[in-house]
Design a protein around this nucleic acid. Structure first.
Lengths: 114, 114
DNA sequence: TTAATTGTTCTGCATATATGAACTATAGTA
DNA sequence: TACTATAGTTCATATATGCAGAACAATTAA
């Protein structure tokens, strides 16, 4: 299993961020990580991610990979689990309101549905 | 040729916006439309879009279609041409800083490259 | 060693994207 | 009414990408 790759902040791109967050499942994962008190592992999302959709773990793993490679999430192995946290602080410093605006947009959109 | 479809503001989604703008070519087109004084037609972008990349008109047409269906651009036939303008005002009203944040992000990213 | 748990990678299939070719729509001109 | 030119869309298809089951890898515990 090759080591996880996390882009340096200077290699993170706007298109990468938008691509990653254009998928509602990934956006949900990211937002749950962002609002979590501590790092969460993938399996947290196995049961039902957001709208009650349950996904196979291979699909979830791919989604985490996309978030990681876009520079949105930092993942670290802790024993048998993977601990994931967002890179919001770095991103805010580099891109200002970009990520926050997206999260706010989704929050507004989804609040009306539940 | 079936009539162009423009989503009503209430059918525009965050994921649609992000998907459309996750493509640098489309982002470039959108930003050029946004900063244009008047509506521009597709062929304006035929020669070279942004980074000097020249695309076939069928591809450009598809990109415009994506922008239109995402609710980012409004297109209107004027004679043989198509006049395109952004829907920034509506979008700002519905989504606040979402689109502006994205545009600012790309602007910052691209300013460093030219 | 064996088993259990967590997550990744591989693989086949299904969907999506890009582009040349063909087509449609409008305007101008004879 | 042709015929031509221009702007853009749609079609066909080859390529690329995404999803999910199966196999694999890494760690922990018994």
């Amino acid at each position: 299993m090759r080591p996880l790759s996390h882009p340096k902040i200077e290699h993170i791109t706007v298109e990468g961020i938008l691509y990653a967050l254009a998928d509602p499942v990934r956006a949900r994962i990211f937002m749950e990580l962002a609002s979590a008190e501590s790092a969460k592992n993938c399996s947290t999302f196995l049961g039902a991610c957001g709208g009650g959709v349950s996904l196979p773990k291979s699909t979830l793993s791919q989604h985490f990979k996309v978030l990681r490679e876009a520079g949105l999430v930092y993942s670290e192995r802790k024993g048998v689990e993977m601990h994931n946290r967002t890179r919001c602080a770095e991103l805010r410093e580099k891109y200002g309101a970009l990520v926050g605006g997206i999260v706010a947009g989704y929050a507004a959109q989804w609040d009306n549905l539940f």
